[in-house]
Design a protein around this nucleic acid. Sequence first.
DNA 1: CCTACCGATCGGTAGG
DNA 2: CCTACCGATCGGTAGG
Lengths: 224, 224
Amino acid sequence: MATGRPNENSGRARPRYDALVDVSTELFGKHGFEGTSVRMIADALGVKSGSLYSHIKSKDEVLHRIVLTVADAFFDAVKEAGEAPGSPIDRLRAMCRAHLEVIDHHGPAVRVYYDEWRRLGGKSKKQILTLRKAYENCFTEVIEEGIEDGSFGAVNVPWVTLVILSACNWSVEWYSHDGPRSPAEIADGFMEVLFDGIRADSPAYAAPRRKKSAKRTKRPASKR
Amino acid sequence: MATGRPNENSGRARPRYDALVDVSTELFGKHGFEGTSVRMIADALGVKSGSLYSHIKSKDEVLHRIVLTVADAFFDAVKEAGEAPGSPIDRLRAMCRAHLEVIDHHGPAVRVYYDEWRRLGGKSKKQILTLRKAYENCFTEVIEEGIEDGSFGAVNVPWVTLVILSACNWSVEWYSHDGPRSPAEIADGFMEVLFDGIRADSPAYAAPRRKKSAKRTKRPASKR
DNA sequence: CCTACCGATCGGTAGG
DNA sequence: CCTACCGATCGGTAGG
Protein backbone atom coordinates (compact mmCIF):
# COMPACT_ATOMS: atom_id res chain seq x y z
CA MET A 1 0.00 0.00 0.00
CA ALA A 2 1.03 3.61 -0.50
CA THR A 3 3.62 2.51 -2.98
CA GLY A 4 2.80 5.46 -5.18
CA ARG A 5 0.26 5.04 -7.94
CA PRO A 6 0.63 6.67 -11.34
CA ASN A 7 -1.41 9.86 -11.59
CA GLU A 8 -2.10 9.87 -7.88
CA ASN A 9 -4.12 12.89 -6.83
CA SER A 10 -4.82 13.29 -3.12
CA GLY A 11 -7.45 10.57 -2.86
CA ARG A 12 -10.11 12.39 -4.86
CA ALA A 13 -12.62 10.08 -6.54
CA ARG A 14 -12.12 9.69 -10.28
CA PRO A 15 -14.95 7.52 -11.57
CA ARG A 16 -14.05 7.95 -15.26
CA TYR A 17 -10.47 6.98 -14.64
CA ASP A 18 -11.53 3.97 -12.60
CA ALA A 19 -13.93 2.82 -15.31
CA LEU A 20 -11.14 3.21 -17.84
CA VAL A 21 -8.85 1.03 -15.76
CA ASP A 22 -11.57 -1.56 -15.25
CA VAL A 23 -12.37 -2.03 -18.92
CA SER A 24 -8.68 -1.97 -19.78
CA THR A 25 -8.14 -4.76 -17.26
CA GLU A 26 -10.80 -6.90 -18.93
CA LEU A 27 -9.39 -6.25 -22.40
CA PHE A 28 -5.73 -6.72 -21.44
CA GLY A 29 -6.68 -9.97 -19.74
CA LYS A 30 -8.51 -11.25 -22.80
CA HIS A 31 -6.31 -10.00 -25.64
CA GLY A 32 -3.06 -9.12 -23.93
CA PHE A 33 -1.60 -5.64 -23.54
CA GLU A 34 -0.14 -5.44 -27.04
CA GLY A 35 -3.25 -7.05 -28.48
CA THR A 36 -5.49 -4.33 -27.05
CA SER A 37 -5.76 -0.99 -28.85
CA VAL A 38 -6.76 2.28 -27.29
CA ARG A 39 -9.71 2.26 -29.67
CA MET A 40 -10.96 -1.00 -28.15
CA ILE A 41 -10.82 0.62 -24.72
CA ALA A 42 -12.60 3.73 -25.98
CA ASP A 43 -15.31 1.65 -27.68
CA ALA A 44 -15.98 -0.25 -24.47
CA LEU A 45 -16.40 3.07 -22.68
CA GLY A 46 -18.58 4.54 -25.43
CA VAL A 47 -16.19 7.41 -26.21
CA LYS A 48 -13.71 8.25 -28.96
CA SER A 49 -10.10 7.17 -28.56
CA GLY A 50 -8.75 10.70 -28.31
CA SER A 51 -10.90 11.33 -25.27
CA LEU A 52 -8.99 8.79 -23.19
CA TYR A 53 -6.00 11.08 -23.02
CA SER A 54 -7.66 13.58 -20.76
CA HIS A 55 -7.54 10.86 -18.10
CA ILE A 56 -4.30 9.07 -18.89
CA LYS A 57 -0.91 10.00 -20.24
CA SER A 58 -0.36 6.75 -22.12
CA LYS A 59 -1.51 3.19 -22.53
CA ASP A 60 1.55 2.06 -20.57
CA GLU A 61 0.43 4.08 -17.60
CA VAL A 62 -2.76 2.02 -17.41
CA LEU A 63 -0.78 -1.22 -17.41
CA HIS A 64 1.47 0.10 -14.67
CA ARG A 65 -1.54 0.98 -12.58
CA ILE A 66 -3.13 -2.46 -12.96
CA VAL A 67 0.05 -4.40 -12.22
CA LEU A 68 0.97 -2.24 -9.25
CA THR A 69 -2.47 -2.58 -7.71
CA VAL A 70 -2.25 -6.37 -7.82
CA ALA A 71 1.32 -6.47 -6.53
CA ASP A 72 0.25 -4.26 -3.61
CA ALA A 73 -2.76 -6.48 -2.96
CA PHE A 74 -0.67 -9.65 -2.80
CA PHE A 75 1.90 -8.11 -0.52
CA ASP A 76 -0.59 -6.49 1.85
CA ALA A 77 -2.78 -9.58 2.13
CA VAL A 78 0.06 -12.01 2.71
CA LYS A 79 1.87 -9.74 5.14
CA GLU A 80 -1.23 -9.28 7.24
CA ALA A 81 -1.92 -13.01 7.30
CA GLY A 82 1.67 -13.77 8.23
CA GLU A 83 1.69 -11.34 11.13
CA ALA A 84 -1.56 -12.49 12.69
CA PRO A 85 -1.36 -14.49 15.90
CA GLY A 86 -1.27 -18.25 15.58
CA SER A 87 1.07 -21.17 15.04
CA PRO A 88 3.46 -21.10 12.08
CA ILE A 89 1.47 -23.76 10.27
CA ASP A 90 -1.76 -21.81 10.74
CA ARG A 91 -0.11 -18.60 9.58
CA LEU A 92 1.32 -20.33 6.53
CA ARG A 93 -2.14 -21.63 5.76
CA ALA A 94 -3.59 -18.14 6.21
CA MET A 95 -1.00 -16.73 3.81
CA CYS A 96 -1.93 -19.24 1.13
CA ARG A 97 -5.58 -18.50 1.70
CA ALA A 98 -4.88 -14.77 1.45
CA HIS A 99 -3.04 -15.29 -1.82
CA LEU A 100 -5.95 -17.27 -3.27
CA GLU A 101 -8.41 -14.67 -2.06
CA VAL A 102 -6.54 -11.94 -3.91
CA ILE A 103 -6.75 -14.05 -7.06
CA ASP A 104 -10.43 -14.60 -6.43
CA HIS A 105 -11.17 -10.96 -5.73
CA HIS A 106 -9.10 -9.26 -8.41
CA GLY A 107 -10.01 -11.67 -11.20
CA PRO A 108 -8.69 -10.55 -14.59
CA ALA A 109 -6.29 -8.00 -13.09
CA VAL A 110 -4.29 -10.91 -11.69
CA ARG A 111 -3.96 -12.43 -15.16
CA VAL A 112 -2.63 -9.11 -16.42
CA TYR A 113 -0.21 -8.94 -13.51
CA TYR A 114 1.33 -12.33 -14.22
CA ASP A 115 1.31 -12.02 -18.00
CA GLU A 116 2.47 -8.48 -18.52
CA TRP A 117 4.58 -7.27 -15.60
CA ARG A 118 7.81 -7.87 -17.48
CA ARG A 119 6.75 -5.51 -20.26
CA LEU A 120 6.88 -2.60 -17.82
CA GLY A 121 9.69 -0.10 -18.16
CA GLY A 122 12.77 -0.14 -15.97
CA LYS A 123 11.60 1.85 -12.96
CA SER A 124 8.12 0.35 -12.80
CA LYS A 125 9.52 -3.13 -13.19
CA LYS A 126 11.92 -2.63 -10.30
CA GLN A 127 9.05 -1.43 -8.15
CA ILE A 128 7.18 -4.66 -8.87
CA LEU A 129 10.24 -6.81 -8.20
CA THR A 130 10.74 -5.10 -4.84
CA LEU A 131 7.16 -5.79 -3.82
CA ARG A 132 7.45 -9.39 -4.95
CA LYS A 133 10.62 -9.91 -2.98
CA ALA A 134 8.99 -8.52 0.16
CA TYR A 135 6.03 -10.80 -0.46
CA GLU A 136 8.31 -13.83 -0.65
CA ASN A 137 10.15 -12.85 2.48
CA CYS A 138 6.89 -13.13 4.41
CA PHE A 139 6.85 -16.85 3.61
CA THR A 140 10.50 -17.38 4.41
CA GLU A 141 10.15 -15.71 7.78
CA VAL A 142 7.22 -17.82 8.91
CA ILE A 143 8.96 -21.00 7.85
CA GLU A 144 12.08 -20.02 9.79
CA GLU A 145 9.99 -19.26 12.87
CA GLY A 146 8.37 -22.66 12.56
CA ILE A 147 11.75 -24.35 12.60
CA GLU A 148 12.90 -22.33 15.60
CA ASP A 149 9.85 -23.04 17.71
CA GLY A 150 9.83 -26.73 16.80
CA SER A 151 6.66 -26.67 14.69
CA PHE A 152 8.61 -27.85 11.66
CA GLY A 153 11.58 -30.16 11.23
CA ALA A 154 15.04 -29.07 10.08
CA VAL A 155 13.79 -28.36 6.60
CA ASN A 156 15.62 -26.65 3.79
CA VAL A 157 14.04 -23.19 3.97
CA PRO A 158 14.68 -22.02 0.39
CA TRP A 159 13.30 -25.20 -1.17
CA VAL A 160 10.23 -25.21 1.03
CA THR A 161 9.65 -21.53 0.26
CA LEU A 162 9.99 -22.18 -3.43
CA VAL A 163 7.51 -25.06 -3.40
CA ILE A 164 4.86 -23.13 -1.51
CA LEU A 165 5.32 -20.05 -3.67
CA SER A 166 5.03 -22.22 -6.76
CA ALA A 167 1.74 -23.67 -5.58
CA CYS A 168 0.35 -20.20 -4.82
CA ASN A 169 1.59 -18.55 -7.99
CA TRP A 170 0.64 -21.37 -10.33
CA SER A 171 -2.89 -21.34 -8.99
CA VAL A 172 -3.69 -18.36 -11.20
CA GLU A 173 -3.56 -20.82 -14.10
CA TRP A 174 -6.40 -23.02 -12.90
CA TYR A 175 -8.33 -21.26 -10.15
CA SER A 176 -11.88 -20.25 -10.95
CA HIS A 177 -14.26 -18.31 -8.78
CA ASP A 178 -16.96 -20.76 -9.88
CA GLY A 179 -14.81 -23.82 -9.20
CA PRO A 180 -15.61 -26.44 -6.55
CA ARG A 181 -13.02 -25.28 -4.01
CA SER A 182 -12.83 -22.10 -1.98
CA PRO A 183 -9.56 -20.29 -1.31
CA ALA A 184 -9.61 -21.71 2.22
CA GLU A 185 -10.05 -25.28 0.99
CA ILE A 186 -7.25 -24.89 -1.50
CA ALA A 187 -4.96 -23.53 1.20
CA ASP A 188 -5.83 -26.58 3.31
CA GLY A 189 -4.95 -28.84 0.41
CA PHE A 190 -1.58 -27.18 -0.11
CA MET A 191 -0.79 -27.34 3.60
CA GLU A 192 -1.72 -30.98 3.86
CA VAL A 193 0.76 -31.94 1.16
CA LEU A 194 3.46 -29.64 2.43
CA PHE A 195 3.09 -30.56 6.08
CA ASP A 196 2.72 -34.31 5.83
CA GLY A 197 4.78 -35.07 2.75
CA ILE A 198 4.14 -38.33 0.94
CA ARG A 199 6.53 -40.82 2.54
CA ALA A 200 4.80 -43.93 3.77
CA ASP A 201 6.39 -43.79 7.22
CA SER A 202 5.19 -40.28 7.97
CA PRO A 203 3.10 -40.11 11.15
CA ALA A 204 0.35 -38.70 8.92
CA TYR A 205 -0.29 -42.11 7.45
CA ALA A 206 0.10 -44.30 10.53
CA ALA A 207 -2.91 -46.40 11.53
CA PRO A 208 -5.54 -45.55 12.53
CA ARG A 209 -6.16 -43.91 9.17
CA ARG A 210 -7.63 -40.50 8.56
CA LYS A 211 -6.68 -37.96 11.20
CA LYS A 212 -7.45 -34.26 10.95
CA SER A 213 -10.41 -34.34 8.58
CA ALA A 214 -12.14 -36.79 6.28
CA LYS A 215 -11.40 -34.96 3.07
CA ARG A 216 -8.25 -36.87 2.24
CA THR A 217 -9.96 -38.75 -0.57
CA LYS A 218 -11.75 -35.87 -2.20
CA ARG A 219 -10.30 -34.04 -5.13
CA PRO A 220 -9.36 -30.41 -5.53
CA ALA A 221 -10.43 -28.08 -8.30
CA SER A 222 -9.54 -29.28 -11.78
CA LYS A 223 -6.08 -28.19 -12.67
CA ARG A 224 -3.85 -27.89 -15.64
CA MET B 1 5.75 -36.54 -30.99
CA ALA B 2 4.17 -36.92 -34.40
CA THR B 3 1.32 -34.74 -33.28
CA GLY B 4 1.27 -33.10 -36.69
CA ARG B 5 3.19 -29.93 -37.25
CA PRO B 6 1.90 -27.06 -39.33
CA ASN B 7 3.33 -27.14 -42.84
CA GLU B 8 4.75 -30.60 -42.32
CA ASN B 9 6.41 -31.93 -45.47
CA SER B 10 7.72 -35.48 -45.32
CA GLY B 11 10.73 -34.79 -43.12
CA ARG B 12 12.66 -32.84 -45.73
CA ALA B 13 15.12 -30.35 -44.26
CA ARG B 14 13.98 -26.74 -44.44
CA PRO B 15 16.82 -24.63 -43.10
CA ARG B 16 15.19 -21.29 -44.02
CA TYR B 17 11.98 -22.25 -42.26
CA ASP B 18 13.87 -23.44 -39.21
CA ALA B 19 15.85 -20.22 -39.03
CA LEU B 20 12.61 -18.28 -39.32
CA VAL B 21 11.12 -20.21 -36.41
CA ASP B 22 14.26 -19.74 -34.35
CA VAL B 23 14.42 -15.97 -34.71
CA SER B 24 10.65 -15.73 -34.18
CA THR B 25 11.06 -17.67 -30.95
CA GLU B 26 13.64 -15.21 -29.70
CA LEU B 27 11.52 -12.21 -30.66
CA PHE B 28 8.22 -13.61 -29.34
CA GLY B 29 9.98 -14.45 -26.09
CA LYS B 30 11.37 -10.94 -25.73
CA HIS B 31 8.51 -8.78 -27.01
CA GLY B 32 5.54 -11.13 -26.95
CA PHE B 33 3.67 -12.43 -29.98
CA GLU B 34 1.56 -9.32 -30.50
CA GLY B 35 4.54 -7.11 -29.77
CA THR B 36 6.56 -8.70 -32.57
CA SER B 37 5.97 -7.60 -36.16
CA VAL B 38 6.73 -9.63 -39.25
CA ARG B 39 9.16 -6.88 -40.21
CA MET B 40 11.15 -7.48 -37.02
CA ILE B 41 11.40 -11.13 -37.97
CA ALA B 42 12.42 -10.28 -41.52
CA ASP B 43 15.06 -7.81 -40.33
CA ALA B 44 16.59 -10.43 -38.05
CA LEU B 45 16.83 -12.78 -41.03
CA GLY B 46 18.20 -10.07 -43.34
CA VAL B 47 15.29 -10.28 -45.79
CA LYS B 48 12.23 -8.17 -46.63
CA SER B 49 8.98 -8.87 -44.82
CA GLY B 50 7.17 -10.07 -47.93
CA SER B 51 9.72 -12.81 -48.43
CA LEU B 52 8.66 -14.58 -45.26
CA TYR B 53 5.42 -15.66 -46.88
CA SER B 54 7.07 -18.13 -49.21
CA HIS B 55 7.87 -20.15 -46.08
CA ILE B 56 4.86 -19.53 -43.88
CA LYS B 57 1.17 -18.93 -44.37
CA SER B 58 0.79 -16.55 -41.46
CA LYS B 59 2.40 -15.24 -38.31
CA ASP B 60 -0.03 -17.37 -36.30
CA GLU B 61 1.31 -20.50 -37.93
CA VAL B 62 4.74 -19.76 -36.52
CA LEU B 63 3.33 -19.39 -33.01
CA HIS B 64 1.47 -22.67 -33.38
CA ARG B 65 4.65 -24.42 -34.44
CA ILE B 66 6.66 -23.09 -31.49
CA VAL B 67 4.02 -23.89 -28.88
CA LEU B 68 3.36 -27.36 -30.25
CA THR B 69 7.04 -28.24 -30.32
CA VAL B 70 7.38 -27.37 -26.64
CA ALA B 71 4.18 -29.18 -25.65
CA ASP B 72 5.44 -32.27 -27.44
CA ALA B 73 8.83 -31.98 -25.79
CA PHE B 74 7.32 -31.81 -22.30
CA PHE B 75 5.04 -34.74 -22.88
CA ASP B 76 7.65 -36.96 -24.50
CA ALA B 77 10.31 -36.25 -21.89
CA VAL B 78 8.05 -36.75 -18.89
CA LYS B 79 6.39 -39.84 -20.30
CA GLU B 80 9.72 -41.50 -20.99
CA ALA B 81 11.00 -40.67 -17.51
CA GLY B 82 7.81 -41.97 -15.92
CA GLU B 83 7.96 -45.29 -17.75
CA ALA B 84 11.60 -46.04 -16.98
CA PRO B 85 12.32 -48.75 -14.44
CA GLY B 86 12.76 -47.67 -10.86
CA SER B 87 10.86 -46.92 -7.68
CA PRO B 88 7.95 -44.45 -7.81
CA ILE B 89 9.96 -41.83 -5.96
CA ASP B 90 12.88 -42.19 -8.36
CA ARG B 91 10.54 -41.98 -11.35
CA LEU B 92 8.85 -38.91 -9.94
CA ARG B 93 12.25 -37.35 -9.48
CA ALA B 94 13.20 -38.28 -13.03
CA MET B 95 10.02 -36.67 -14.34
CA CYS B 96 10.79 -33.41 -12.57
CA ARG B 97 14.32 -33.54 -13.86
CA ALA B 98 13.02 -34.18 -17.38
CA HIS B 99 10.69 -31.21 -17.11
CA LEU B 100 13.54 -28.94 -16.01
CA GLU B 101 15.75 -30.27 -18.78
CA VAL B 102 13.16 -29.33 -21.37
CA ILE B 103 13.10 -25.83 -19.93
CA ASP B 104 16.87 -25.75 -19.99
CA HIS B 105 17.16 -27.05 -23.53
CA HIS B 106 14.36 -25.14 -25.25
CA GLY B 107 15.09 -21.80 -23.62
CA PRO B 108 12.99 -18.97 -25.00
CA ALA B 109 10.55 -21.32 -26.75
CA VAL B 110 9.34 -22.39 -23.32
CA ARG B 111 8.58 -18.77 -22.41
CA VAL B 112 6.54 -18.44 -25.57
CA TYR B 113 4.73 -21.67 -24.76
CA TYR B 114 3.64 -20.52 -21.32
CA ASP B 115 2.90 -16.93 -22.29
CA GLU B 116 1.11 -17.34 -25.59
CA TRP B 117 -0.56 -20.75 -25.83
CA ARG B 118 -3.94 -19.29 -24.96
CA ARG B 119 -3.82 -16.93 -27.94
CA LEU B 120 -3.94 -19.92 -30.30
CA GLY B 121 -7.12 -20.54 -32.23
CA GLY B 122 -9.70 -23.15 -31.25
CA LYS B 123 -8.28 -26.28 -32.85
CA SER B 124 -4.65 -25.56 -32.02
CA LYS B 125 -5.54 -24.70 -28.47
CA LYS B 126 -7.39 -27.97 -27.98
CA GLN B 127 -4.40 -29.85 -29.30
CA ILE B 128 -2.22 -28.20 -26.68
CA LEU B 129 -4.70 -28.88 -23.90
CA THR B 130 -4.83 -32.56 -24.85
CA LEU B 131 -1.05 -32.85 -24.69
CA ARG B 132 -0.99 -31.06 -21.38
CA LYS B 133 -3.59 -33.34 -19.91
CA ALA B 134 -1.64 -36.43 -21.01
CA TYR B 135 1.47 -34.89 -19.48
CA GLU B 136 -0.31 -34.42 -16.17
CA ASN B 137 -1.66 -37.96 -16.21
CA CYS B 138 1.91 -39.24 -16.21
CA PHE B 139 2.38 -37.69 -12.78
CA THR B 140 -0.92 -38.91 -11.43
CA GLU B 141 -0.19 -42.48 -12.49
CA VAL B 142 3.20 -42.66 -10.84
CA ILE B 143 1.80 -41.25 -7.62
CA GLU B 144 -0.99 -43.82 -7.63
CA GLU B 145 1.50 -46.61 -8.20
CA GLY B 146 3.54 -45.34 -5.30
CA ILE B 147 0.54 -45.56 -3.01
CA GLU B 148 -0.32 -49.06 -4.20
CA ASP B 149 3.14 -50.47 -3.73
CA GLY B 150 3.57 -48.82 -0.35
CA SER B 151 6.23 -46.32 -1.36
CA PHE B 152 3.94 -43.47 -0.38
CA GLY B 153 1.35 -43.00 2.33
CA ALA B 154 -2.37 -42.69 1.73
CA VAL B 155 -1.96 -39.26 0.19
CA ASN B 156 -4.54 -37.18 -1.62
CA VAL B 157 -3.52 -37.82 -5.21
CA PRO B 158 -5.01 -34.71 -6.85
CA TRP B 159 -3.47 -32.33 -4.33
CA VAL B 160 -0.07 -33.98 -4.52
CA THR B 161 -0.23 -33.92 -8.30
CA LEU B 162 -1.16 -30.27 -8.26
CA VAL B 163 1.70 -29.32 -5.94
CA ILE B 164 4.33 -31.11 -7.98
CA LEU B 165 2.99 -29.75 -11.26
CA SER B 166 3.01 -26.27 -9.76
CA ALA B 167 6.64 -26.59 -8.77
CA CYS B 168 7.61 -27.82 -12.25
CA ASN B 169 5.54 -25.31 -14.18
CA TRP B 170 6.46 -22.32 -12.04
CA SER B 171 10.14 -23.06 -12.51
CA VAL B 172 10.02 -21.42 -15.92
CA GLU B 173 9.71 -18.14 -14.02
CA TRP B 174 13.03 -18.39 -12.23
CA TYR B 175 15.15 -21.10 -13.82
CA SER B 176 18.29 -19.98 -15.60
CA HIS B 177 20.71 -22.11 -17.53
CA ASP B 178 23.50 -20.14 -15.89
CA GLY B 179 22.03 -20.48 -12.42
CA PRO B 180 23.73 -22.35 -9.58
CA ARG B 181 21.49 -25.46 -9.75
CA SER B 182 21.21 -28.12 -12.42
CA PRO B 183 17.87 -29.64 -13.42
CA ALA B 184 18.82 -32.76 -11.44
CA GLU B 185 19.59 -30.76 -8.31
CA ILE B 186 16.33 -28.88 -8.59
CA ALA B 187 14.41 -32.13 -8.99
CA ASP B 188 16.14 -33.39 -5.84
CA GLY B 189 15.07 -30.26 -3.99
CA PHE B 190 11.46 -30.63 -5.05
CA MET B 191 11.43 -34.31 -4.10
CA GLU B 192 12.96 -33.65 -0.72
CA VAL B 193 10.19 -31.22 0.20
CA LEU B 194 7.45 -33.36 -1.27
CA PHE B 195 8.65 -36.63 0.18
CA ASP B 196 9.55 -35.55 3.68
CA GLY B 197 7.08 -32.73 4.29
CA ILE B 198 7.88 -30.23 6.98
CA ARG B 199 6.26 -31.62 10.13
CA ALA B 200 8.65 -31.90 13.03
CA ASP B 201 7.76 -35.52 13.81
CA SER B 202 8.51 -36.76 10.30
CA PRO B 203 11.13 -39.55 10.31
CA ALA B 204 13.15 -37.27 8.02
CA TYR B 205 14.01 -35.02 10.94
CA ALA B 206 14.58 -37.59 13.67
CA ALA B 207 18.01 -37.66 15.29
CA PRO B 208 20.64 -38.37 14.14
CA ARG B 209 20.31 -35.36 11.84
CA ARG B 210 21.08 -35.24 8.17
CA LYS B 211 20.28 -38.45 6.35
CA LYS B 212 20.43 -38.83 2.59
CA SER B 213 22.86 -36.02 1.74
CA ALA B 214 24.45 -33.04 3.38
CA LYS B 215 22.86 -30.41 1.20
CA ARG B 216 19.92 -29.76 3.47
CA THR B 217 21.31 -26.38 4.45
CA LYS B 218 22.29 -25.12 1.03
CA ARG B 219 20.03 -22.92 -1.00
CA PRO B 220 18.46 -23.44 -4.39
CA ALA B 221 18.62 -21.08 -7.32
CA SER B 222 17.24 -17.65 -6.58
CA LYS B 223 13.54 -17.56 -7.12
CA ARG B 224 10.76 -15.14 -7.48
C1' DC C 1 -15.62 14.69 -24.60
C1' DC C 2 -15.50 15.67 -29.88
C1' DT C 3 -13.62 16.20 -34.69
C1' DA C 4 -9.96 15.82 -37.37
C1' DC C 5 -5.82 14.45 -38.08
C1' DC C 6 -0.50 13.14 -37.56
C1' DG C 7 3.23 9.87 -39.23
C1' DA C 8 4.24 5.24 -38.47
C1' DT C 9 3.37 0.75 -38.83
C1' DC C 10 0.51 -3.42 -39.21
C1' DG C 11 -0.13 -8.46 -41.64
C1' DG C 12 -0.28 -9.82 -45.99
C1' DT C 13 -0.44 -10.03 -51.41
C1' DA C 14 0.73 -9.43 -56.56
C1' DG C 15 3.78 -10.09 -59.85
C1' DG C 16 7.98 -10.82 -61.05
C1' DC D 1 13.95 -13.43 -52.47
C1' DC D 2 12.67 -8.50 -54.25
C1' DT D 3 9.88 -4.26 -55.27
C1' DA D 4 5.87 -2.13 -54.66
C1' DC D 5 1.93 -1.81 -52.69
C1' DC D 6 -2.92 -2.90 -50.36
C1' DG D 7 -6.36 -1.19 -46.81
C1' DA D 8 -6.47 -1.13 -42.02
C1' DT D 9 -4.99 0.26 -37.88
C1' DC D 10 -1.67 1.93 -34.44
C1' DG D 11 -0.74 5.40 -30.15
C1' DG D 12 -1.19 9.89 -29.59
C1' DT D 13 -2.00 15.22 -30.37
C1' DA D 14 -4.19 19.91 -31.58
C1' DG D 15 -7.68 22.77 -30.97
C1' DG D 16 -11.90 23.41 -29.71
